[in-house]
Structure formats: C-alpha cells, structure tokens
C-alpha cells in the first residue's frame, strides 16, 4: 500500500514538473527584434560614421535603393530599381528578411524619402538593430508637372549667419536713434538630480 502511494506521488510530481516546463516554454516568447547596439556605442558610431550617399552615386551596382515613403507616394513616382518599404512597416517579418538577405549579400542599403530628415529616424532604428549596411541618399524629392525631380540636399548646413543678420539690421537702421528692446530677465533653473541611493554606513 505504502509503495503504491509513493509511486503515485512521484508520478504526480513528475507530471506537474513536466507540465510546468511545457507551459514555461510555450509562454516564453523571445522578443522578435532586439537591438544589437546599446545607446552609448550607437551614439559613438552615429557621430563618427558617415551615412550619406550622394545622388551621383545612385547607379552603383552594389547599392539597393529602398523608398521609405508610403506606398501611395511610391506609386506616384519613384527612382528606378527602388523597392518600397514604408517606415511603419520596416519591422515586419517579410521586410526584415529583405534587410537580412541584403546584408548577407554584402549589398549597401540606400534609403531615401522626401528629404533626408524624414529618413533619418528610420535609418537609425535599422542601424541600432544591427544592420550596419544602411545608408542615406542625400536627396530631396519633389514633383514638377507629375514628374519626379531629385535634388541634392545639404544636411545640417547653416544657411544663414543669424547673428550677422541681426547685426546688419541694426547697422542699416539709423544709428543716431536707438531702439528699445525688452530683454527677458535672467532665469535661474535648477534641475533636481535624481537622488541616488547610497549605501549608508552604520554600526
């Protein structure tokens, strides 16, 4: 009788154990996409690497053009040989497969959109996911009479020296009369630091 009970307990325990393991494995979902870079290294790479591809190099055999605008805009007009993967859809499985295969093939992915600023964030997400072969086409796209026009675009170029412009404007004005300008009072802003808990000593 005792022996029988023992066997019963063991079998119950083992089935419970197996069940728990199975449930654990079934509910365990590995996150589909994981970042390959942490933010510190990403920042280093962003500030040191160049992501830009000038418009003249667009026909390079090693480049694969990808249009990140919406499919509607893509249908209206796009660069030859480009395929369409709009920004909201870059993390879809099928699209990630495309990026993976392109990386494997050693091709450079060149993203473009209406302007480089629009593509910037898309590129950075892909880059942080580990696709270090993505680049950005330095071009702006516009339409003239339904024809697609590409234009080279300068990124982050200061267009005008604003300080100089303001100085110039005061010079142009009559120097004898002077202008009253309200200056905002000095503000002192203190940022509270989050307190870090520190181990406190004691006896």
């Amino acid at each position: 009788m005792k022996e029988l009970e023992k066997v019963k307990n063991i079998s119950i325990a083992s089935t419970l154990f197996i069940l728990a393991v199975i449930i654990g494995l079934l509910t365990y979902k590995r996150p589909k996409n994981t970042f390959a870079l942490n933010t510190k290294t990403a920042l280093e790479k962003i500030t040191s690497d160049s992501f830009f591809v000038p418009l003249v190099n667009v026909n390079n055999q090693n480049y694969k053009l990808i249009d990140v605008r919406s499919s509607y805009e893509f249908d209206k007009g796009h660069l030859d040989t480009a395929i369409n993967i709009s920004t909201p859809e870059i993390l879809k499985e099928a699209n990630l497969e495309i990026f993976k295969s392109l990386k494997k093939a050693g091709k450079t992915v060149v993203l473009y959109g209406n302007n480089p600023e629009e593509v910037n964030t898309t590129l950075l997400i892909l880059y942080q996911l580990g696709y270090n072969n993505v680049k950005l086409l330095k071009a702006e796209i516009s339409y003239l009479q339904n024809r697609l026009i590409t234009k080279n675009s300068d990124i982050e170029k200061s267009e005008k020296d604003i300080a100089e412009f303001i100085k110039e404007s005061t010079k142009n004005a009559d120097s004898s009369s002077v202008i009253q300008i309200v200056t905002p009072p000095k503000k002192v802003i203190t940022v509270k630091q989050k307190k870090k808990k520190t181990a406190e000593g004691g006896c």
Binding site: V178, V188, K192
Partner: peptide, 16 residues
Amino acid sequence: EVETPKIAPKKIITVK
C-alpha cells in the same frame, strides 16, 4: 526709441 539692442542674456542653469 532708445538703447542698442541686446541679445537676451543667457540663462544660468545650475545643476546640483
């Protein structure tokens, strides 16, 4: 009007 224009003074932000 009077006075030469000044660019707004810089805000001093102190961080503890």
